[in-house]
């Protein structure tokens, strides 16, 4: 397969993940594997920031790479760490056993057979989510267009990850909203049933349901569902005490409109 064809296939693979069956590990494994296939590098790996902000090794094209990246995180020094913190690329850095910038990392990397290193930020609109690390076992520089290609691949993977994160957040919020609305509706239905069966107005019907739930240690939504589905008898609900109506404790209850905040 030609380099161009491989690149296009990689972009399609990464973009495919934008839609369904999204798996962050899959996306980043594709990214690191293809970097090795398409570019003049020997190993590639991706570190991603966890929700707390600390970097984690997520994908590596080889075990040697994975070991080195874990070491980098433990030592808290190295190209990926610096690139993530600064958000700036580190390109064509020669590794020697004696290195002032990253003394421990460089010694270990050279011992593992690596000679030069590149780290590209994974960032979108000011947010850096991680970094792409690439290592070569021989000296010599990455061509400028290789750097551009690598950054493009990292950018596509970054977009996929950020879209996934926002979609997950949206799904949680939307599920919560749907659930809250649906339980509200069931409570309104139960209020209507109690109101018709017992001649109370909507507010008093709600108070009756709620006080029964409290007396019997039931969840309000579950009791309302039982009433609405006919499995809980309305006649069997505790009557409201006449002289001491249950006071609303909800700040949002508007007695006039008979609606019930959940």
């Amino acid at each position: 397969m030609s380099r161009e064809a491989l690149l296009i296939r990689t972009l399609v693979e990464l973009a495919d993940n934008l839609v369904d069956d999204f798996d962050v590990i899959d996306v980043l494994t594709v990214l690191s594997d293809r970097c090795v296939e398409v570019l003049d590098v020997d190993s590639a790996g991706v570190m991603l920031a966890a929700p707390g902000g600390e970097l984690q090794v997520v994908a590596s094209s080889s075990d040697a790479m994975r070991g080195l990246e874990l070491f980098e995180l433990q030592a808290n020094e190295g190209p990926c760490v610096d690139c993530f913190v600064s958000g700036e690329p580190i390109v064509n850095l020669e590794l020697t056993a004696v290195d002032e910038r990253w003394p421990r990392f460089a010694r270990r990397a050279v011992a593992d057979g690596f000679r030069s290193v590149h780290a590209l930020p994974m960032r979108l609109r000011g947010t850096t989510v991680g970094a792409l690390n690439m290592f070569r076992t021989s000296l010599g520089s990455l061509r400028e267009d290789d750097v551009i290609v690598a950054q493009a691949l990292a950018d596509v993977a970054t977009i996929a990850i950020i879209q996934h994160q926002s979609a997950v957040g949206a799904a949680v919020l939307n599920a919560q909203l749907s659930e809250a609305l649906n339980s509200r509706i069931i409570i309104e239905q139960a209020k209507g049933m109690v109101s018709e069966a017992s001649g109370l107005d909507m507010d008093r019907s709600f108070q009756r349901i709620r006080s029964h739930a409290r007396n019997h240690n039931l969840r309000l939504t579950e009791l309302a569902r039982g009433i609405a589905e006919g499995s809980t008898s309305i006649v069997g609900l505790d009557p409201l005490p006449r002289s001491h109506p249950v006071r609303s404790t909800s700040p949002h209850l508007r007695p006039g409109d008979g609606s019930t905040p959940a």
Binding site: L181, R184, I185, E188, Q189, A190, K191, G192, M193, V194, S195, E196, A197, M202, A228, I234, G258, S259, T260
Partner: peptide, 15 residues
């Protein structure tokens, strides 16, 4: 959210 409709549906279901 048309809550009044669901109250009415509850009443009609008993009626």
């Amino acid at each position: 959210f048309h809550f009044v409709v669901h109250q009415a549906a509850g009443m009609v279901s008993i009626q």
